[in-house]
Nucleic acid binder design. Structure first.
Lengths: 125, 125
DNA sequence: TCTCATGTTAAAGTGAGCTTTAACGAAACG
DNA sequence: CGTTTCGTTAAAGCTCACTTTAACATGAGA
């Protein structure tokens, strides 16, 4: 069991964000100690890890919420959930390819700077 | 020379965004026709292409603006500009590696769904 | 027991990056 | 010549994903 501070440090997520995720239903309701303080358990951290993976690969909070709803509905939605992950993964791969193209553009720009830096101003010929 | 509508179609950027970029100094002031309408020329489109590459790889508008300021200052800033692009590129590459790790997480989740779908509920042994 | 760090909540506030609105001008079409 | 389309501006508005604030509670250490 982990306090909110420990989770904050483990994941690099502010406590305010952890509370916000719980309020929004992105995390399940977290158990409390006698004083009403949150105590995170392993499955909840596992879950948080997937949420972070989805968020950092560009899934919107609303879509993550939809996915969480399916998890709550149990095993009947396993296929649907797999499909959502698959489509998201394909999305991410498309975006990565776009990013690679953009990096190419940036590389070409840098190459031009290098030519200019060496006084080779005849590269346009 | 291209009208704002043509640029909008070429780049998939709304005209409102093109006007917004110009207002913010992210694009140079665009020339006008006799009726005060914007006419984009080739160098401006080249420039827009780099802006889009930087934006879509996660550079903030403020940083793009800083870069634009250096361009305006001319050749003295060539080295500094190359350095900014280099650092941004390294940043993007770090983020891509993070994304690959996140994809691994998503893949493992999908694999679990596959095992469950085939009734192999003994995978935890 | 006092104090101070750490936690709690609901609600308001923030910042980035556009997008919409309103009011108007120019110009192409029938 | 009228009307519909495309453009212009400044300013206000919007969405997303948090973040801050205010007011209060708990619990550990001196």
């Amino acid at each position: 069991m982990f306090t909110i501070k420990e989770v904050q440090e483990k994941f690099g997520l502010p406590a305010s964000t952890l509370r916000f995720y719980e309020k929004e239903g992105i995390l399940p309701p977290i158990g409390r100690d006698s004083g009403g303080r949150r105590l995170y358990s392993e499955p909840e951290l596992e879950w948080l890890q997937l949420v972070v993976a989805l968020r950092d690969t560009g899934m919107t909070m609303d879509h993550i919420k939809d996915y969480v709803e399916l998890v709550k509905q149990g095993d009947e939605t396993l296929h649907q959930r797999r499909q959502i992950l698959l489509e998201h993964k394909q999305d991410v791969e498309r975006k990565m390819n776009q990013t690679l193209e953009h990096l190419e553009k940036i590389n070409r720009k840098m190459a031009i700077y290098d030519l200019l830096a060496h006084g080779k101003r005849d590269f346009l010929i």
